[in-house]
Design a protein around this nucleic acid. Structure first.
Lengths: 149, 149
DNA sequence: TTTGGTGCAAATAATTTGCAGTCTC
DNA sequence: GAGACTGCAAATTATTTGCACCAAA
């Protein structure tokens, strides 16, 4: 294994699984690593990536594993499209997703971007889940470009 | 018809449909009114509501109609759960949705809540679609309450 | 009369579940 | 060896589509 991130998270994976009396399997390692490598991936994309390495892995395993990894706190998901959820590693700093609906590009911003928002809602006792936040709109280059057909 | 909102929007509905060479049908009126009355409703909920009045309305009609209404600018949708989109009327002021993931309650906030955020992204040329924004977290009463089982 | 719209049923797509065999601990 | 995990296939759920008939303009 030559990937730093993967190496770091694989220790956590083993540890946290053990804590819960769960088992470390090749599938779980591969799926966690796929999420880390892909940065923002839907279950489908994770499946495709993992199958590139081990073709026998099943879709249901991906769904079940992402759920487990999320419970263990190793991955998180946000909704970056009208469709599937996208998963990302919690090794990355918590960040806010800003999505252009025209070109589907996703940019990550530091959480300070929503500092005022979080503070304002905190006054009402509301705790914002910043990592789950997705902000939609149109990016600079798409705004500059004429409307699509 | 005794509902003010419905009355107001029904004129727009007729007008905008005509502008596009589309037709005014009972289903379209009922579905638009359902969205207005329900405030935040998934296609399923809209269907159930409409069927309470006219049992023969079909699910595919609801999907197709919500799409048309959104194109006409009469309704909008946001993603307020990990599942279905929820539709709301554009007669209401544009607002930001704040959703508690523990009790699923939804509160609407004035768009000024995200003013700083919108301004910050505008500096990067990004135009935020405020009406589509959903902010997740935990509301005051759920935070106060002990964890669920 | 001329399309656009609707209901219906079948097709997709995405995700979940039951189960029997397999593998981790 | 016990029980968790996986693959597979079938079941769900949500949404879309093709088509014949109906109806708004």
């Amino acid at each position: 294994m030559s990937d730093d991130a993967a190496t770091g998270s694989e220790e956590s994976l083993a540890t946290r699984l053990r804590e819960q009396g769960l088992r470390l399997t090749p599938q779980r390692q591969l799926i966690l690593r796929a999420v880390e490598e892909l940065r923002h991936a839907t279950p489908d994309e994770v499946l495709a990536h993992v199958r590139g390495q081990v073709s026998s892995v099943n879709a249901s395993t991906v769904y079940r594993t992402l759920e487990v990894l999320e419970e263990l706190g190793l991955v998180r998901h946000a909704h970056l499209s009208d469709r599937a959820p996208t998963y990302h590693s919690t090794l990355e700093h918590e960040h806010v997703h800003v999505v252009c609906r025209r070109c589907d590009s996703v940019r990550s911003y530091d959480t300070e971007l929503v500092g005022p928002l979080v503070a304002a809602l905190a006054e009402d006792g509301f705790t914002v889940d910043v990592g789950h936040l997705a902000i939609f709109g149109e990016c600079a280059s798409c705004v500059a470009r004429p409307q699509e057909p």
